[in-house]
Design a protein around this nucleic acid. Structure first.
Lengths: 174, 174
DNA sequence: TCCAAAAATTTGCATTTGCAAATAAAATAT
DNA sequence: ATATTTTATTTGCAAATGCAAATTTTTGGA
């Protein structure tokens, strides 16, 4: 029963491609004095400054506790600052410093170069298709717990209304 | 100069999708008593048993030193065995045990369920296109050191003839 | 108003990770 | 045949990671 071919297994192909790009870029970033994870935080802040820690964690796919400690370091290096925000004193808003912005601006062209390198051989239409599909995969897996073969007592209920899962027809209507 | 949109940045989309699928599947695998990394090793061995450590490291995208220690554990759990091979006594061939195979067979349908879940909304033609593109990205990044903006003294030479980089027109002829 | 439950972040702690150095065997040169 | 270099794997060690518990603030009731 040769029913499983790793070379054609989507999660494998995804992980493998992502790892290669990440590893290559990580070296480049380290030369500029920041780790890959720091770059991810900076890029997320470039997209939207002043995000809360949890928000940043979701955005960067970094575990929130790991991120908390990473932010300690970034703060020490004066790349970001923590600011206990106005309304909700529970959340902490993270802001890029001028230095943080400078490093980001320095790394953006490098990042784009790696993106171009990765996408060699794809025309812009194909590249758009690829990106759309990746967004789709992400949405399809929208923070769900278990799929398929329920092991033991896997509860299958929707846990609150998740917009990303709604959008993509993840749940069959019933 | 809003020249960088994270939401449209390929490495980001890739990492994000990969992380979600991996995280979700990791939980499922842990319920079966294996970590995600162990599953990766087992799946690689399912594809081709008796691989050398270095080979497995490349296949799984796990660092070789990390893998070496992971194999210690898997060996203790009797999932795999190390065998100093015939010809080249330097390399160590890793073999799945019966128990290792059993867990693998148990996890394969689960893995496939997650793959289907991720690919909801894609027809089989689109899915093939996606996989081909991911293979392309992987090949495009074929173990190269640096692209674009050479920081400091980045040597740019091809390091031996790499078939995966040749295939995909990574290097402009000159 | 006061209290229990919920939410955001941080911290404790054991494990995992990855670079660099150490070890071991094979290939190559002298 | 012996020394040198290369290749494969493992190990030392410091740093990163992630789960669970602790802490702090907010929210929604009695």
């Amino acid at each position: 029963m040769a029913t499983f071919d790793l070379e054609d297994f989507l999660p494998y192909l995804l992980n493998r491609a992502g790892a290669r790009i990440a590893d290559a870029f990580a070296k480049e970033a380290r030369r500029r004095g920041v780790t890959l994870q720091m770059w991810r935080v900076l890029a997320a802040l470039h997209q939207k400054d002043g995000q809360a820690v949890g928000e940043l964690a979701r955005m960067t796919s970094i575990d929130v506790s790991t991120l908390s400690r990473l932010l300690d370091q970034m703060q020490q290096r004066r790349l970001v600052s923590r600011r206990r925000n106005g309304q909700d004193q529970r959340s902490v808003a993270i802001h890029r410093s001028a230095a943080g912005e400078a490093v980001t601006e320095e790394l953006i062209p490098v990042a784009l170069a790696y993106e171009r390198q990765a996408a060699i051989g794809l025309d812009s239409r194909q590249e758009k298709v690829l990106k759309d599909m990746l967004r789709r995969l992400y949405a399809n897996m929208g923070s769900l717990e278990a799929v398929g073969t329920p092991a033991q007592t896997t509860r299958q209920g929707r846990k609150s209304t998740n917009p990303s899962t709604m959008r993509s027809g993840l749940w069959r209507s019933r």
